[in-house]
Design a protein around this nucleic acid. Structure first.
Lengths: 235, 235
DNA sequence: TATTGACGTGAACAGTCATTCACGTCATGT
DNA sequence: ACATGACGTGAATGACTGTTCACGTCAATA
């Protein structure tokens, strides 16, 4: 019992930390509660991680590794773009259900009490997916699969916005409740949700070549043939 | 000085509260700090609002009123659907910039330390927009302006997801940094951002009538004519 | 087996914060 | 001008939490 903690014990501490931070947020999380839930004394957390701040960052990074693996696995398979997107969405939904704490902790990271980590963590967390998605949609655009009327980075941004909200919707209480208000029972059917979001995204990728002529436009990336449909219906 | 506080003074306390809750989150927010920043003693906050929980709810509701007004105003004008959507987006972006605390507080509401309000607040906050958007897209679908392949409520859900993330992206530090990572300088141009998101949404509304035949489909709301384009390009 | 010291333990400390309430102040009514 | 009491004040209270460190334990070594 008085030997250095092994990998598994440290992992258990990190898991307990993730659960606690996800449950309360950074500041209200209690180090003593983490220690108790992990079956160790507070002392070891300070010996191994320094202080609460460093422990928090360790928890974030630990959860990042696992999320990364999920993402990579889901994105790895080949196949048509549509199928890949749908697979990614479904994987994220399922991962959010089964590892709710991980996603809930992400939500906590974005909160005000983590303000001083905002820059660092945003860069650490988002730059990977940002680059990945930007490349994906850049290639799609070159292959003529993504409308020329939206820059690939912006498309990647909207895409990730939808994915993040979907993850929160399956792992944080507030967002769960919100999804139920919006979708009713439709929220319960993972396959349906993934299917509809895929359709939504594919529609957005194809773009609407008509009916935007009247809008304020700022340097449209490319002009397109005129619209062949009735122009608009005011509602 | 020893008269009952007037409307303005109470408003100032609520504003100070919103700023504090937005800055730290619920638990770390200090009632004493709010009192100091509002120029009153802690006592009055307890006299007028009961306790910290009740004060928090009062702040949320106060900010809701103002947000509601913005939303209603932006949604009120007529005109073509496209223009209305774009106007709404632009209004939300500008409102997020000018009243960052309000949106940042929303983000805090979704956090774990507000768990016990999740149900109540979600219902209070979201049901208005949820119903509004669902009706909007229901009408659009009946007018043939929204693809039949997505249920209006789900479309409204995705729509609001995008709007929420956009608001956070202009008011919370973490999301601001994230947006910069994804979009670079494009994030700075409000008109451009509103324009691109509008295009994205209009594309999604129109839907992609092709190329989903290979996907897992769950009870597609309606069948559509076969696609006339090459089917897919694997990437 | 005796010794050693690396290691985890958890009581104790210092600081913070929500909440209370005895008190001082001043607008009002006479 | 005085008495009254409604009202805000802010020091005090009690609870809680991050962090430390003197101590006990036990695996390894000779």
């Amino acid at each position: 019992m008085y030997r250095k903690l092994d990998e598994a014990a440290l992992g258990a501490i990190l898991e307990a930390g993730i659960a606690e931070f996800a449950r309360c947020g950074f500041q209200p999380a209690s180090v003593a509660a983490v220690a108790k839930s992990a079956g160790v004394s507070v002392g070891v957390i300070y010996k191994y991680f320094g202080d609460k701040d460093a422990f928090f960052l360790a928890c974030v990074r630990h959860s990042l590794d696992l999320l990364d693996a999920t993402l990579r696995e889901a994105a790895a398979g080949g196949g048509p773009l549509e199928a890949r997107i749908q697979r990614l969405i479904l994987a994220l939904i399922r991962q959010s259900r089964s590892h709710a704490s991980y996603n809930a902790m992400y939500n906590e990271i974005t909160s005000g009490s983590c303000r001083r980590y905002a820059g660092t963590l945003a860069r650490e967390i988002e730059s990977r997916t940002a680059a990945l998605y930007a490349r994906l949609f850049d290639e799609a655009q070159q292959a003529g699969r993504l409308t020329e009327r939206i820059e690939p980075q912006l498309f990647a941004f909207f895409f990730d916005n939808l994915l993040m909200m979907l993850q929160f919707s399956y792992s944080c209480e507030y967002y769960q409740e919100r999804m139920r208000i919006f979708c009713g029972d439709a929220a319960l059917d993972d396959t349906k949700m993934a299917d509809r979001l895929t359709r939504f995204l594919l529609g957005a990728m194809k773009g609407d070549v008509c009916s935007i002529s009247s809008l304020t436009t700022s340097e449209p990336p490319e002009s397109r043939p005129a619209c062949s449909e009735p122009n608009r219906i005011s509602g």
